[in-house]
Every structure is written in structure tokens, then in C-alpha cells.
């Protein structure tokens, strides 16, 4: 029993939890920025830039807007951060000492939704019209992108007869897993809020939306949550491809390579598109998202 606790704490704080999740997330975010910069003929930031951004925000004085409950102002990012750390700890990355049990997929899905929910609430409590519009958009977008996201995960679960993430990581690569990865990738664009789905945080429309009134430490926590979310969601796609390999180093390598490829693909899409409108995005996810889901389910059941 003692061992279980140590393992759980290790998973939460080190691998794949807070520390490595943050480092991996920052690395992926830096890669996006650098890659987009190079595509646009710019120099781009050095690799430690996301860490400095975070550190700078922590050092800043926090100003709580008038009429906003301070407890709520701090609690929202903290709850979001804690849930995403727990979600990361569930991820069956190679070498994880983590917690694994039947049904952890369901818990993971719930935990992934928590930061989004916190974002939406944060948008409403900060009493800025821009943030409120951003929150509305985020809430609408959630309904849209969750269709392919949940569809793909459930289809895989049906195919593998298990709601345990470790089974996902051990499953062989098949057409169903590849299709599921594609569906997850489609959802990823909106989950990471990059173009063409950078709708809730549209700078030119609603002055960066939800976090417009956030600053200092709480904003830093939101940014950290975003980095962890990035590593979690990208990692979720990556684990679908590590099944066939036996050596842990090989698994790690494939995990890493797939993550990098996914991030590069995301950024090619982001760099080559303009921002869509909410109704465009909704239509996109409810037509192509449904198509992808149906395909994944069909592949999972038939093939």
C-alpha cells in the first residue's frame, strides 16, 4: 500500500505529472512558436522562452479587478491546474509509475474538461464583456470539438473492450487507432485554441477574450495549465502508437516523435489558415467531426 502512494505521488509530481508535463508542454509550445516563426520568416524565441514567460508572470503584482471575489479569482486557475495534473498522472506514458485502474479513461475525460470549465467560469466572473464573449465562444466550441474527441475515445474503448488507458497504450496499431488519432487531432486544433479555431482567445476581436482581466500569478497558473494540457492532449495521441514496441526506450522515442509530428502538423494548419467564426467551427465539427466519428466507430466494430 505504501508503495502505491509513493508511485502515485511520483506520477503526480514528476513523471508524467507536473514537472515533466510542464517541461514537455513548454518544449512543445516553444516548438510551435519557433516553427511558425521560421515559416513566417522570423527568428523565433529561444527554447527557454516559455519558462521565462511563466517566471515573469509569477514575479508580477496581481491586480484583482473591482467587484471580483478574490477567492474565486485565485481558486479557478488552481482547480484547473490540479485537475490537469491528476489527468496527466493517469496517462500511461512509457515508464510511468502511475495509477491505473479499469475506468480511468472516464476519469481522464472528466479531468480534461475541468480547465475548460474553469476558463468559462473565469470569463464570466471577471466582469469584462470581452471575457464574457470569449467564455460563450469557448463553451460553444467545447460542445463542437468534444464530438470527435469523445467519439474516437469511446470507439477505441469499444474495440479494446476496456475503459483502461493502459490497454490503449498496449494496443497494436490498426486502421481504427490511426483513424482515432486523426479524429483526436481534429479535436486538438480547437482544444489548443490555435488557428483556424483560435476563436475564444481572438486578440483582434475580443482582446484575447477569457483571460483579459487575469494577470500575475493566476495568469501564470492558467498558462501553466495550458502547457500541461498541451502535453496531455498531444500525449494522448502519442500513446496510441507505442503499443507494438517492447523496449521502453523505443516506446519513449516513438512517443516523443509522434508528439513532435502532431505539434508540427497543428502548426502547419495554424500558419496556413485564417481564424474562422464560431458558427463555421461548429459546422465544421458537426459535419467532419461526425464523419470522423462514424468512420472510427465503423472501423472499430468491423475491422
Amino acid at each position: 500500500m505504501n508503495n502505491w502512494w509513493i508511485n502515485a505521488i511520483l506520477a503526480l509530481l514528476f513523471w508524467p505529472g507536473l514537472l515533466s508535463g510542464a517541461l514537455f508542454g513548454w518544449f512543445l509550445l516553444w516548438m510551435s512558436r519557433k516553427f511558425i516563426a521560421r515559416l513566417q520568416g522570423r527568428q523565433g524565441p529561444p527554447f527557454y522562452q516559455p519558462f521565462f514567460d511563466f517566471w515573469k508572470l509569477i514575479g508580477k503584482k496581481t491586480i484583482i479587478p473591482n467587484g471580483v471575489n478574490p477567492v474565486l479569482f485565485y481558486a479557478l486557475p488552481i482547480i484547473g491546474l490540479i485537475s490537469i495534473i491528476f489527468a496527466l498522472a493517469l496517462l500511461p506514458v512509457p515508464g510511468s509509475s502511475g495509477i491505473s485502474f479499469e475506468g480511468d479513461l472516464v476519469l481522464l475525460i472528466y479531468l480534461i474538461e475541468m480547465p475548460v470549465l474553469m476558463d468559462v467560469i473565469a470569463g464570466y466572473v471577471t466582469r469584462s464583456v470581452y471575457a464574457q464573449v470569449g467564455a460563450t465562444r469557448e463553451a460553444i466550441l467545447t460542445i463542437a470539438y468534444n464530438l470527435p474527441f469523445l467519439g474516437a475515445l469511446i470507439a477505441l474503448a469499444v474495440r479494446l473492450h476496456s475503459f483502461k488507458l493502459a490497454t490503449f497504450a498496449a494496443a497494436p496499431i490498426s486502421i481504427a487507432t490511426i483513424l482515432a488519432a486523426v479524429a483526436l487531432f481534429v479535436a486538438l486544433l480547437a482544444q489548443l485554441k490555435v488557428n483556424p479555431f483560435s476563436i475564444p482567445n481572438a486578440e483582434q476581436e475580443i482582446v484575447a477574450g477569457i483571460h483579459v482581466e487575469y494577470n500575475g500569478l493566476p495568469l501564470a497558473l492558467f498558462e501553466l495549465t495550458h502547457a500541461l494540457e498541451t502535453s496531455l492532449l498531444v500525449g494522448l495521441i502519442s500513446i496510441l502508437f507505442i503499443g507494438p514496441f517492447t523496449s521502453i526506450w523505443m516506446k519513449l522515442l516513438i512517443f516523443f516523435v509522434v508528439a513532435v509530428v502532431v505539434i508540427l502538423l497543428t502548426n502547419i494548419t495554424a500558419a496556413g489558415t485564417a481564424r474562422l467564426k464560431v458558427q463555421h467551427a461548429f459546422k465544421f465539427y458537426w459535419t467532419w467531426g461526425i464523419a470522423a466519428t462514424v468512420l472510427v466507430v465503423a472501423a472499430a466494430l468491423i475491422l
Binding site: 513566417q40 488557428n195 483582434q204 496556413g272 489558415t273 485564417a274
Partner: peptide
């Protein structure tokens, strides 16, 4: 115009 619809790559190309 490109920047206003979030198309940063286009913005860079045009300003070049």
C-alpha cells in the same frame, strides 16, 4: 486585414 482575421503568416508575407 489578414491580421484581423488572425492570419499572421499572410501578414508577414504582405509586410515583407
Amino acid at each position: 486585414g489578414a491580421e484581423d482575421i488572425g492570419y499572421h503568416s499572410m501578414f508577414m508575407e504582405i509586410y515583407f
